[in-house]
Design a protein around this nucleic acid. Structure first.
Length: 693
DNA sequence: TTTTGAAGTCTCTCC
DNA sequence: GACTTCAAAA
């Protein structure tokens, strides 16, 4: 419904396709890029460093394929995030015109979803299945857990998120449950068998309730390709060329899918950079990209090393930092760009001073006519921008925050969606349970018995109306039955149907919400927003699926700027910033224990991934880069009994020496001064071991 | 037996 | 601040 308003990196250019079949690639691309773009058939691996024109190359490759007569709808372009997919397709459109609109593209999950809607019936999947997000999966896990009686065990049983994580990791990586538990949850080894039982029940439950989780989307895709020759032929036969972006972030399951899609041809192009692999928590393994030539024999390898994005000073800093990684396979980036400012390393006294520095500096840059949309502030985790958001709001600077799917994860939004979901899929146990618990007089036991009653009535839609609730739940039951009946024969079958449904749900829900929360207003306005979003979808099913797979990418800009004013500052997690670039980038909270996150310091692999994440953050900058670290971070952290106030270990001496050091005094002057004394890095690992056992 | 309120625990990244 | 656990109230 919306198009990501990104910086226009390359000028729009229109070309008439048919009159100019032989694009002048040499003029637009360097020799390596051109080699990749014009590669013929067969597997191709492009190792592309940060800012080396990876997207550009991929877009030109699409153009090249179209020029060669490949039909656009027979090209599948797989990307990692929805933002990347949109960016790629709109750039392709600018290059080759509207033909490229027919190219199939999207995330692995969204593509799997499309295929399952189309071929799911043949694979034994009921047509109206509901997609569960991660939170829903965990909720279902909890139902399985308590159904099996684990909730009342004396010794602590893994919580639902842990169960969900272990399960998901097993599906995505193929590592056995036993190994995962032993390696990562040694305290639960006694429950090894129980993990299996819960997962078996969870799997059954999903099937009976017609629910599909994120992992299933990929798994079913792989299984359709591997277990049924007819389906495999149909599905893999849909495409002649596959292009995969961010290949370093794919996992074993996705590699299986790609192999299955290449049964009859090997026209697969993958692009990636092992130095930017930051999704191992999702089962990705950057070694996958190095294994590509083994999986696809005869692969051509092209390496892109010329950086077009950053100043030499920025490049020198980032190259130095990534060179410290213990495992490293490729390339050193270079640039022809000249001139530029040395990146700043800024020590602030505390969080608030860091905030003021960033805001002041942003305003200065803005004065120098850099648009706000060309400036980004990056951080390790979503909550780290809280203070900055308050300050920006106070100073009326419009901003947009990326990352953190807060909106859809908010309890009240999920509540309202649950009503829509049971209408769409009456068997959706997770949503029923959620709704029932909202009602006064209904708790765990009553909810269970109601669900039980509906299950034995084969989930027939009137079953809930016939259920006899205990006396104290009677009023709530009647109200809910009336609401659901009203929603079912809603005569309003026009465009605004979903919005109207939500409005109807809110006649019941708003009062519940007001009672549950002290400050209901912001939550009510979230629901208003949900109604607005819903207006963009033709029907309930499309709305629900889209929300699961393509959540709104930014939480509402809190500064309250008008919607059409799109010049606003970007705040983003480092993860969500991948693939983007800005004129000026601020990396905040470069404090050991924060970035890198303290929980990722237990082993070298995780620490290396954190380093790559820092690398991703810093390489987003074109001309201006500033890294800030507040001292005395502990003083702003509630309840923490330890002090982490050291500069991030990734900014070591060699990196520091390539930066301009700035110390903010108490008078908050913004000026370069003598290098501040940076005390030696702590052995944080030993420190934390002592504190947390 | 079931619900509800209070105290206690941990707080990342994303499809 | 959100979720879990535990004990008191209905």
């Amino acid at each position: 419904m919306t198009e990501a308003a990104g910086p226009r990196v390359y000028p729009a250019r229109k070309r008439v396709v048919h009159s100019n079949p032989a694009r002048d690639l040499a003029a637009d691309l360097n020799p390596q890029q051109a080699a990749a773009a014009t590669h013929g058939d067969g597997p191709l691996l492009i190792i592309a460093g940060a800012g080396t024109g990876k997207t550009r190359t991929l877009v030109y490759r699409v153009a090249h394929l179209l020029d060669c007569g490949v039909r656009p709808e027979r090209i599948l372009l797989l990307t990692f995030t929805r933002r990347a997919s949109q960016e790629m397709l709109s750039r392709a459109e600018r290059l080759v015109g509207s033909t490229s609109r027919k190219v199939h593209g999207g995330t692995f999950h969204a593509t799997a979803h499309r295929l399952l809607r189309r071929y799911g019936l043949a694979a034994g999947l009921a047509k109206d299945f509901t997609i569960m997000d991660q939170g829903d999966s965990a909720d279902l896990m909890r139902l399985s857990r308590s159904q099996l009686g684990y909730a009342t065990r004396s010794k602590r049983f893994p919580k639902k998120e842990t169960l969900q994580y272990v399960y998901s990791r097993h599906i995505n990586t193929g590592i056995t449950i036993e190994d995962i538990v032993r390696d990562e949850y040694a305290q639960f080894v006694d429950y090894l068998e129980d993990f299996g039982k819960v997962f078996a029940d969870y799997t059954d439950r999903k099937q009976q309730r017609n629910l599909v989780d994120y992992d299933d989307l990929l798994l079913f895709w792989a299984l359709m390709l591997e277990a049924s020759p007819e389906l495999a032929a149909k599905i893999s036969g849909m495409y002649d060329h596959l292009l995969v972006d961010e290949y370093q972030d794919t996992n074993v399951l996705q590699a299986r899918i790609l192999r299955g899609m290449c049964r009859t041809h090997a026209n697969i192009t993958v692009v990636g950079d092992d130095a930017q692999s930051i999704y191992s928590f999702r089962g990705a393994n950057f070694r996958n990209i190095l294994g590509f030539p083994k999986q696809f024999a005869g692969a051509t390898i092209v390496t892109l090393e010329q950086n077009y994005r950053s100043t030499p000073q920025i490049l020198e800093v980032t190259n130095t930092m990534i060179s410290r990684a213990t495992e490293r396979f490729t390339k050193n980036l270079w640039t022809e760009r000249a001139g530029g400012e040395t990146p700043w390393l800024v020590a602030a006294q505390d969080e608030h001073q860091q905030t003021r520095f960033v805001v002041d500096r942003i305003l200065e840059l803005h004065e120098e006519s850099i648009p706000l949309s060309e400036i980004a502030v990056l951080f390790r985790a979503g909550y780290m921008s809280a203070d900055l958001e308050i300050e920006l709001t106070n100073r009326k600077i419009p901003f947009e925050k990326w990352g953190g799917l807060k909106f859809l994860e908010a309890a009240h939004v999920k509540d309202v969606l649950a009503f829509l979901r049971i209408l769409e899929n009456p068997r959706d146990e997770v949503s029923w349970y959620r709704i029932l618990l909202l009602l006064p007089g209904i708790g765990d036991a009553t909810a269970r018995s109601a669900i039980e009653a509906m299950a034995s009535a084969a989930w027939e839609s009137a079953a809930f109306g016939r259920y006899q609730p205990p006396p104290r739940a009677r009023a709530a039951h009647t109200a809910l039955v009336a609401l659901l009946d009203g929603l079912r024969d809603d005569p309003n079958a026009d465009q605004a149907k979903v919005t109207a449904d939500i409005a109807r749900v809110r006649t019941l829900y708003d009062s519940i919400l007001r009672e549950r929360y002290d400050r209901a207003e912001p939550r009510l306005s979230d629901l208003d927003q949900l109604q607005t979003i819903a207006a963009g979808y033709p029907d309930r099913a499309a709305f629900l699926s889209a929300l699961a797979l393509e959540p709104p990418q930014a939480t509402q800009d809190l500064a309250g700027a008008s919607r059409d004013d799109d010049d606003c500052l970007i705040l983003s997690t480092a993860h969500s910033a991948k693939g983007k670039e800005w004129d000026a980038v601020f990396v905040i909270w470069a404090v050991d224990g924060w970035f890198p996150s303290a929980r990722c310091l237990d082993n070298d692999e995780d620490t290396d991934e954190e380093r790559r994440l820092m690398y991703v953050a810093m390489t987003r900058a074109r001309n201006y880069l500033s890294v800030t670290y507040p001292l005395n971070a502990y003083s702003t952290r509630r309840g923490a009994n330890y002090s982490i106030d050291q500069l991030s270990r990734f900014i070591d001496r060699g990196v520091r020496d390539r930066m301009e050091r700035v110390a903010l005094g108490s008078e908050q002057a913004v000026r370069p001064v003598e290098a501040p004394a940076v005390s030696p890095l702590l052995d944080l690992r030993a420190l934390l071991r002592g504190k947390f056992g």
